[in-house]
Nucleic acid binder design. Structure first.
Length: 841
DNA sequence: AAGAGGTCCGTTTTT
DNA sequence: CGGACCTCTT
């Protein structure tokens, strides 16, 4: 085979087909279990699930709708393959996207097969399997198998250096942006020489390709890879070394892929290489079949990651890619009520280009509540009303753990958090900044990385002057120069430099001290428990002291995190093992013991379920998001709709959808229109709720009316009731939404922009909400329109003008700032609004 | 080497 | 508006 440096027994001892499995091995136990209780694991599966489990041969696509038992099918299928002796655990390749999914699958396969999961060495994420492959064959990619894995942060710092080294202005050409471009290319499986000419020119005056190549070159020198490389390198290796690929043909008898709709082009290529037998290169035993036994499980209706490279097309194309494939639809839903399923199906049916599934349930219960659509005045009221509903449910004995609020954008969370803090309601935020991304954790890890792998220049650079030890910019540059000239890692260069007169005495002493420390720690690496060593490193480097001496509010928390870091290292065998884990696994488990409402984005909700789900913010511009519309056009809208579908199908019993009439965006109040998705819900399954007694509704007074809750709402915005609408569908906002659907209203665009021509012209995303609606090229059109309208109306308003606002009523202009007006409304108080939303009276 | 002040920007997120 | 990031200052 490949002749990798660490020639580990590549194919396990159960590799070669043998008449009987090793005694006591997993397969043996599984087979024994099968004899005792014949195919017990198949019981309880419905016919489609069972077919998906038992159709082991040839390509299979399982279209698994939300809540149809997808994971169960996957794990049972593995169990079935093992139990029937079709393959040994090491001959099954099972890939997932997230570590969480991989963990869950391991756990559930373990139930069937016994504890010894190490028998499934090829069950993991695309990336973790990529690492495994690459460590074996590193030299074929010009790397050593000890390569380090860079995270996004390292990647950006590296790119920034390269951009500057090219003499480019790194403000004009941000490294972050270039990192995204590189990610995009790598998602498509493209190396520097393969990218499109246009793409190559799009960055840094045509230097895109050159920079990309320089970056790859630099990574090679650093013996490092980024996440994209974990897929790309194996693809290259498979392509360029048919002998290596052949080993894997022989090895993997069954391939299983989870969440196939989320695969990007590179992942597709990777799978394809492993799954498709080119003529003549296949192993003799299966030469006649064109494809290996590949089973992809996914749901085209839940493809919500197009923006980060996922190709829904992969799943849509499956039958063409794998002729003769068996396609199995799982449509029997075990999660949600008939009303929720009805709503979800009707909504998603508005998408074109889907494979088509309709979820159904066997057990409709006449008492089930319909999906509820609520209207709120603004986001504050929305949060307040949702909070009350949650408290009411809690009072009825529902656990907070069974409830979730799913938002489109994370800024929406704030209002809910504020509200829950006031109410004293437990909540947990899922997603957001993660443990391993915190500054102190990354600093500590950088120390460990240098100790474990002293050529890790990026890590060295990160902490060379943290804590401050007088090694500023000048010193670092000096080290860099030496390293470059002599072609050695920074640590080595530092060691050399510390022994010369080239540096001023003070930094020199400091540098020598640091270098000696690293040498000392390296010497201890194999001599003491790694957790102790880690502690010692943080102590002796002065890192812990740095935070102890920091009197800022967050310092104690950071020290706690460092302790937590050390604690979490205990589970690993060695420092190296721990670092490998951290590089790939960025998530940490939440405190499951606490009973709390979950708060997260719709994206992070995929795969979860809750009895009660709240979906706030169903307004045009927010959901569907304006940017998805502007940049993604029709397919952008469809992805938003799939996101809505994902949200709806998270609910088991109760689903509450909310929209507000006003939302504050970038500090400005803006009128909002109900989301078009609301119109796409079937009336038969939806109740439009008028909870006027709970919240103000449209123009209703709500000052201190709530029993047992003394003035919880602050000021009353209205002194007298205004018009009360019978349902949100008859509100002005709703009606306006209907109008807007068919016609692009020039009124909105034309009058709201005032004096902001240059901002709009420069592409300022002021077009965000309300503008450009219904137009794929909103921004451009708006820009043209604005340019005209401004010359026509040099100044539309002046301070003191009496104006009318569709939502806030009458008021007087108190101040003008460009197109932003501060208006004292008679009833609604002082608000800042865009001039396009008011008219003079 | 911290802090004031200025500028820019503003979905979604894994590995 | 508010956060992140950067620069220039003391």
């Amino acid at each position: 085979m490949s002749g990798s440096p660490d020639d580990l027994p590549f194919f396990g001892d159960e590799e070669a087909p043998r008449p009987t499995p090793r005694e006591g091995g997993i397969a043996a136990r599984a087979m024994a279990a099968r004899h005792q209780a014949p195919q017990q694991y198949l019981e309880g599966l419905n016919p489609e699930q069972r077919q998906a489990v038992e159709t082991t041969e040839g390509p299979v696509l399982v279209l698994a709708g939300a809540g149809t038992g997808k994971t169960r099918v996957l794990t049972t299928r593995i169990a079935h393959i093992l139990a029937t002796g079709r393959a040994y655990p090491s001959q099954i390749l099972a890939v997932t996207f997230t570590n969480k999914a991989a963990r869950e699958m391991k756990a559930r396969v373990g139930v069937f097969v016994g504890e010894a999961i190490e028998g499934m060495p090829w069950l993991g994420t695309f990336h973790s399997i990529g690492v495994k492959l690459l460590r074996r064959h590193a030299e074929l990619a010009g790397l050593k198998s000890s390569f380090t894995i860079l995270d996004t942060d390292d990647q950006i710092r590296l790119l920034k250096q390269l951009i500057q080294a090219q003499g480019l202005d790194d403000k004009r050409w941000p490294a972050r942006q270039f990192a995204q471009m590189i990610d995009g290319w790598k998602n498509k499986g493209l190396g520097p020489s393969e990218i499109q000419e246009g793409d190559a020119r799009a960055f840094a005056n045509g230097k895109g390709r050159e920079l990309y190549a320089a970056y790859q070159e630099r990574l090679k020198t650093l013996n490092a890879v980024d996440f994209g490389d974990l897929l790309l390198h194996p693809i290259r290796i498979f392509r360029d070394h048919p002998d290596v690929l052949r080993e894997y043909y022989r090895k993997f008898k069954y391939i299983l892929v989870d969440e196939y709709q989320d695969t990007n082009t590179a992942q597709y290529m990777w799978l394809r290489l492993l799954a498709q037998r080119s003529k003549g290169s296949a192993s003799s035993s299966r030469e006649d079949s064109a494809y290996i036994n590949i089973c992809c499980v996914g749901d085209d209706d839940q493809s919500i990651y197009g923006w980060r490279g996922a190709e829904v097309d992969n799943i849509l194309r499956f039958e063409k890619d794998f002729p003769g494939a068996t396609v199995i639809r799982l449509e029997r839903n075990y999660r949600s009520t008939a009303h929720i399923l009805g709503a979800a199906s009707h909504l998603i049916a508005h998408n074109e280009g889907r494979l088509g599934k309709t979820l159904f349930t066997d057990q409709p219960d006449p008492d089930e509540p319909k999906v509820k659509v609520h209207a709120a005045w603004d986001s504050e009221e929305e949060a307040r009303a949702v909070g009350e509903e949650i408290e009411a449910l809690q009072a009825k004995g529902h656990a907070l753990n069974d409830m979730a609020i799913l938002v489109r954008a994370s800024f929406q969370m704030r209002e809910f958090e504020d509200r829950f803090v006031t109410l004293g309601l437990n909540y947990r935020v899922i997603g957001g900044p993660r443990f391993y991304e915190r500054q102190e954790i990354r600093d500590a890890l950088a120390y460990f990385r240098v100790v474990a792998q002293n050529a890790d220049d990026l890590a060295f650079e990160r902490i060379v002057n943290v804590p401050k030890r007088g090694l500023g910019e000048a010193a670092v540059r000096q080290i860099h120069d030496v390293a470059r000239i002599r072609g050695v890692p920074l640590l080595q260069a530092a060691r050399d430099l510390a022994g010369t007169e080239e540096m001023k005495p003070k930094p020199r002493a400091s540098l020598r001290n640091l270098v000696e420390s690293f040498e000392r720690w390296q010497g201890l690496l194999d001599r003491m428990p790694h957790t102790e060593l880690a502690e010692q490193i943080l102590e002796e480097s002065g890192y812990t002291d740095m935070w102890k001496n920091d009197r800022s509010a967050e310092a104690p928390g950071r020290l706690d995190n460092l302790k937590e870091l050390i604690r979490s290292m205990e589970e690993y065998e060695s420092l190296r093992a721990f670092l490998e884990h951290v590089a790939l696994v960025m998530d940490t488990d939440q405190n499951a013991a606490l009973d709390a409402v979950s708060l997260m984005t719709l994206h992070s909700a995929k795969g979860l379920e809750f009895d009660t789900v709240f979906l706030p913010g169903w307004e045009e511009g927010l959901f569907p998001h304006q940017r998805a519309l502007d940049e993604g056009g029709r397919s952008g809208l469809e992805e938003e709709r799939r996101l809505a579908y994902v949200g709806v199908t998270r609910a088991k019993q109760n689903l509450h959808i909310w929209f507000t009439s006003n939302r504050r965006i970038y500090g400005l109040w803006q009128s909002t229109l109900p989301s078009r998705f609301l119109d796409e819900l079937p009336e038969a399954h939806v109740d439009v709720v008028e909870d006027g007694s709970v919240y103000g509704g449209y123009g209703q007074s709500y000052g201190g009316q709530q029993p047992g809750r003394p003035n919880p709402y602050g000021r009353s915005r209205f002194d007298e009731p205004g018009e009360v609408f019978s349902s949100p569908y008859s509100t002005p906002g709703w009606q306006r939404a209907q109008r807007n659907r068919s016609e692009a209203t020039a009124r909105n665009w034309g009058t709201r922009s005032g004096h902001q021509v240059e901002r709009v012209g420069y592409g300022e995303p002021d077009s965000g909400y309300g503008a450009g609606r219904g137009s794929v090229k909103g921004r451009t059109i708006e820009g043209e329109f604005v340019a005209k309208s401004v010359s026509d109306t040099p100044s539309a308003f002046k301070v003191g003008d009496r104006v009318f606002h569709l939502k806030f009523g009458n008021g007087n202009i108190a101040a003008i700032d460009g197109n932003k007006l501060t208006v004292d409304f008679d009833k609604a108080g002082q608000k800042r609004v865009l001039d396009g939303y008011v008219e003079r009276v």
